[in-house]
Structure formats: C-alpha cells, structure tokens
Design a protein around this nucleic acid. Sequence first.
DNA 1: ACAGCCATGTAACTTGTTACATGATTTT
DNA 2: AAAATCATGTAACAAGTTACATGGCTGT
Lengths: 194, 194
Amino acid sequence: MSVKYALLALLDFTPSYGLQLHSLMEDTLGDSWSINVGQVYSTLSRLERDKFVKRLPDSELSDEDRNMYAITPEGKKELEEWLREPLSREYRLRDVVFAKLVLSHMSGQVSPDEVLQAQRRQLLKETHELTQLRVEADSANSISWILVLESAIMHLEADMKWLDLCEHSLEKLEEVPPPVIRSRPRGRPPKGEK
Amino acid sequence: MSVKYALLALLDFTPSYGLQLHSLMEDTLGDSWSINVGQVYSTLSRLERDKFVKRLPDSELSDEDRNMYAITPEGKKELEEWLREPLSREYRLRDVVFAKLVLSHMSGQVSPDEVLQAQRRQLLKETHELTQLRVEADSANSISWILVLESAIMHLEADMKWLDLCEHSLEKLEEVPPPVIRSRPRGRPPKGEK
DNA sequence: ACAGCCATGTAACTTGTTACATGATTTT
DNA sequence: AAAATCATGTAACAAGTTACATGGCTGT
C-alpha cells in the first residue's frame, strides 16, 4: 500500500524511469523500505492503469529509450489525500504476539510461558542490535536513520514492558475457561432468541 | 499469515468445521482478530492442500453433514514451529508514518509539519478511545482484552513520544539535501568502480 | 410459503514478493 | 567474445478481503 504512494511522491519530485525510482526509494526511505525491482514495474503499471501516472511520449524523451513516467493531476490528488489522512494505529490491536500467547494456550503444544520467554530473548537481542545501530547513526549524523531507529527502539521498549505485564497475568490467562463448543441448531432461531 | 496458525491451533484444541472455527476464533482472539467467514474456508483448503489438516471421513461424522476437519501430525509440527519461533519486530523499521514524513517533504504538496500534526491529533483521539475501553475491560475483568488494550496504549504512547522527537528534528529533516539524480551509463562499469 | 439463519464455497480483486527471461550497452 | 550492469518486464504465488451464489433446515 505504501509503495504506491512512495512512487507517486518521487514522481511528484521529478519524472523518472523504473530503475531510477528504485534507487531513489532507497536513497530517500533507506534500506528498511527497499523492495524488489520488479515491484516497481508492477506498481507502475497499476498506477498507469488507474491514470495516476502517465508514460511520457517518445517525443519528450531526451533520455534515450528509457520509459519515463510522470505524475498526473489525478495522481497528485491521490497522493495528497494519503498524506493528509492520518494513519490509524488500530491495527496494533491485532498483535501477533498476543495471538501466539492465546493460541499456545489453546493448542497445548507449547506453554504460553515458553512463548513469552522466547519473545523476551528476541526483544533483548533486537534492542541490543538497534542500540548499536543507533550509535553508528549518531556518528554518521544521519537524521532520518536516527528517527527510524528511535521509533523502533521505543516500540521494543513498549513490547518489553508489555511482556512483563503479561508474565504477571499468565496464571490468570491460563485460568480462562476453554471456549464452549456450541453446535448451534440450524434453521431459523426461535422468536425469543437473538 | 496468522489466520493459518489460528485455525491450526483451534483444530489442535478440537476438531471442528468451518463456521465453528470462525466463532471459536472470535471467542478466543477477540473482535480485533475477526475475519470474513470466507477466509476460513479458503485458508482451510490451503491447509488441506499442504496436508496440515484433514477432512474427517463421513463415517466418523456424528455431526450430520458438516465438514469436520482435524489437525494432522504435520500440522502439529508446523504449528509448534511457529509457536516456538519468536516474532521478529524488525518490521517496525518500516514505519509508515516515517515514510509519510519523508515523502511529504519530497512531494512538496503537504508539509511534513502538517503530516505530523494530523498524526498527533489521531493519536490523541485513539489514546482517548482506548483508555475508555480499557476502563470498561477492567470492570468486565476480561484479562485478554485488558492485555490487548494495554499493548496498544503503550505503543500509542511510544508513537506520541516519537512524534515529539520528530518535531524537534523537523528543521533538520527539511534541510536534508534532495537526492542526486544520477543517470548512470549503461554497460559494464570500468575496472576501478564498484 | 417464506423469512432467517446455518453452512460451504467461489470469484474477483489487492498488495506484496520472488524468480526468471530478455535485450541493450559497454568494458575487458 | 565474454562479463557485467542497466533496464524492462512477466509469471507465479501467498495472503488478505469482500461480495455473491447456493443449499439446507426450521420457526412463523
């Protein structure tokens, strides 16, 4: 979903061709957003289909035989809307680690405690790695990279605190009664029921 | 990716049929993980294709004409691996809000400051909503729901702190020189270059 | 009969992702 | 000629998502 808008923004900065967009993306968004080159082309073709970008005619091509693309007014509008619309963080409610804790309890193969400890080890490892990178970014004075790393580190800290909270609640979590299997009768429910 | 494992875990708890898995999923993982019913069936058919679940023969069906599924040993193995493998939080490096900040600067349509303020308003709103829900969950004594909400709230707080950090760096961010457009020559690069 | 839910499925679409094929160009 | 890189593209697949079609069953 974001690749589409990255390409639009870059084309709004300057018309380009496929490979150039690919390297521009790495230059501006950094390694973490790097994608497969092929995806640039498939995304471009979708954007062209939707009239958000247009292929420059050969007559305007000073640049040999590369396929130059430019953003259209419709594309600008689409981009602007995306930029103005704040991102909903609701998806955080769909936390995979939470799902693992619950599902491990359901299956019984692995105890929630094991899941929790494994995740904690992982977090420690990642925090350590990112802190290292953070130091390097500081010396390199790379402001974007610093911000990306800070964000990630802050979220890792939040994760860690949350795991502590989970650990305290583990007994309670395991006491949660298993869901009732209610094989509902078919057909229209009786009047009183909802 | 997680729906697959949710179904496996539920089938490891007890053999079920499609619709039952759907309601079991809501009962155990909550509304935030609720999915379209159709997805249960399409995921089940992939799981069957991969031999992770099997359809019980009619002879074993006490339950009329429903298609009962059960997990296979291969499925158990697949599930166990997923549960044991800690989740990498690396994807946090791919932060969409960060991308918006940078891309708004690139396109020039919307200022990074506007993006930032819009996001801050959104965060305040969501924090408020979740805090409300958190109070309700507390009275309902719903331990799972409490944990989900706590996690989300903690991450929202991290987001907020990060936005403050970004605001302080906005001038620096906007000073970042635009990327150089280097139209590289084709062909094999000269010996000295990499 | 029919309303309304149970139950299963499929078709269409989106985004992401990788692997591979194909030329063109230029240095070795 | 061979190697290496630029440049464009396609095929295939995974996973998510919605909309819709189709029966079956049972209160009203």
